[in-house]
Amino acid sequence: MRTAGIDIGSITAKAAIMENGAVLGTRVIFTGYNVEIASRKVYDELLAELDMPGSAVEKIISTGYGRNSVPFAHKAMTEIICHGTGAHFLRNDIRTVIDVGGQDSKAMVVDGSGMVRDFVMNDKCAAGTGRFLEVMARALEVNLDDFGAQSLKAANASRISSICTVFAESEVISLISKGESRENIIAGIHDSVASRVYAMAQRIKASAPIMMTGGVAKNIGVVRALEKKFNTAIEVNEYAQVNGAIGAAVLAARL
């Protein structure tokens, strides 16, 4: 049975197509202004890449913030359940999933059968999200993709004490003017994100093995900072960013 998962996030739209428990392909594009068009586009592009007609896919589940604006999906489910299912699919002993996306961060506790037992989301604040990192990258004039690697070169991570994105940005600017190195500031920013996410995950008694998903999982600096906080290795799968879409495709097979 062929199924698809479409995950429409605030920044990127993701699609995954699966067949009998194997991932056939995935795709990521920018969501842009029109969610409906983005969902169609990411799915069509993936179908084209796999040289597959739409009729070859039996069931589709949509997820993410735009989940209710995907007209061709058979069902919409939240990214919380989808990320839990996706992580369990990729590694079935995972007990905690940390998903840091564009506009929010979440932690989920998953049981042995992949069911989400508890979850927590960031409150109405961009701190601890991908957006926070974007703002900081702009302030530091660094490409976001280089953020992770640069922070690993830091001698001493700066301390960013403010938890508000706007205030933290001015804190970063004042660190720049004091002559603090870019690497140290970036490492400090990663520590700040990690602290927020760690504190949040503690609320639901996060336990190892831990997997990180979502776009921010691509940032090695944040992953390392989180590993230090949790005092354990954090699994980052090659499918981290499309994990929600994979989870949706896995769930679609159960429809």
Partner: peptide, 12 residues
């Protein structure tokens, strides 16, 4: 945000 929390909670 609230809708996502409620939906996820109900799915759980």
């Amino acid at each position: 945000q609230t809708a996502t929390r409620i939906d996820a909670f109900m799915e759980m």
